[in-house]
Amino acid sequence: MIVLFTDFGTRDPYVGQVKAQLAEHAPTQQVVDLLHEAPDFNPHAGAHLLAAFASGFPPGCTFLAVVDRGVGTPRGAAVVLAGGRWFVGPDNGLLSVIAARQTGTRLWRITWKPEAISSTFHGRDLFAPIAAAIARGEFPADKLIPIDKLDVEFDVGDLARVIYIDHYGNAWSGVRNVPQNAHVSVAGERFRHGESFGLVGKGEGFWFINSVGLLELAVNRGSAAKKYGLAVGDPVDVRRLN
């Protein structure tokens, strides 16, 4: 299985071009579109989202992860084996949180460059062929070298900011393991805890722990982003009470 995680969006041709490469190089592999609306140009937010999603996929699968504002520059390219799952993408911090949160992680630098490579589309030309080879079970050792650490490593702890806003207007944070009695405030608004949407009043804001274990801010049958003016990057204040 190859799992796609990008900021490419779905109305442009980029996802289709990547899938064409995967179909050529790994035609028997199932391709899953996990997310193509990761926050644009924001590998820090993407790193925390990717780490939260990873455990929902079986060991042995290969993630092709691309949020790559430095494409075409000397930034590195990496392969990570973490928690029995493979991750292929830019070495810009995007793979660093999942790498650090797992034990027995192994790292490689991608040294291979295809003969034809676009300076602006490494997702298609560089990362897709590597991910396809790994997914086929043909580890491309001749195209990689082992490394001890990634070039860019984000803090492995929680990210107390909004890291994603879904199409409902729910605001996901990078915060985990929050007790129900915690005080949660964002953009000057205090949110109360609720277990689920139907357990709070219509139009009422609340916070809950979502299906991938992250603190999420929502409005029942409404948009938290619109009601409270929330955006990716907004600080999330979580005060855990004794």
Rank of each mutant, 00 (worst) to 15 (best):
G56Q: 07
D33H: 08
P74K: 11
D158E: 15
A218Q: 01
D40T: 10
A52S: 11
I117T: 06
R101Q: 15
S223K: 03
E195W: 13
R176T: 15
E153F: 02
V236M: 05
A23T: 09
L150A: 06
R106C: 09
D7Y: 14
T73G: 04
G203H: 06
A26Q: 07
L230I: 08
Y164A: 02
K143S: 10
K143N: 09
W86Y: 12
F197N: 00
V184R: 01
G83N: 06
A100D: 13
A171H: 07
D234A: 02
L144Y: 08
P114Y: 10
G123N: 10
Q30E: 15
G188K: 06
A116F: 12
L214F: 10
I147G: 03
V79E: 11
I110A: 09
D12K: 05
L35C: 08
I163Y: 05
N92F: 11
G222K: 06
P179N: 05
P39S: 11
A82C: 03
G203Q: 06
I2F: 09
A47R: 02
G201Q: 09
R161E: 15
P90W: 12
H44M: 14
V184N: 02
G137A: 13
A128C: 05
V3I: 15
P59R: 00
G229V: 08
I2H: 04
S55C: 02
I165H: 01
R85G: 03
L81C: 03
K143P: 00
A100K: 13
R75W: 09
V32L: 13
A38Q: 02
G137R: 10
V97K: 04
G46H: 07
E115W: 12
V66Q: 09
V232P: 00
V79R: 04
T111Y: 06
P43K: 03
Y228V: 04
N92T: 06
G72R: 12
V32A: 05
A171G: 09
I98N: 02
G222I: 10
N181S: 10
Q102Y: 13
H44T: 05
A100N: 11
I145H: 08
I117W: 07
G222L: 12
S211I: 07
A132M: 12
L241G: 01
D33Y: 08
S119W: 10
D91G: 06
A100S: 15
F63I: 03
Y164H: 13
L95R: 07
G9H: 11
V156M: 12
D40P: 06
N92G: 03
T111F: 08
A141H: 13
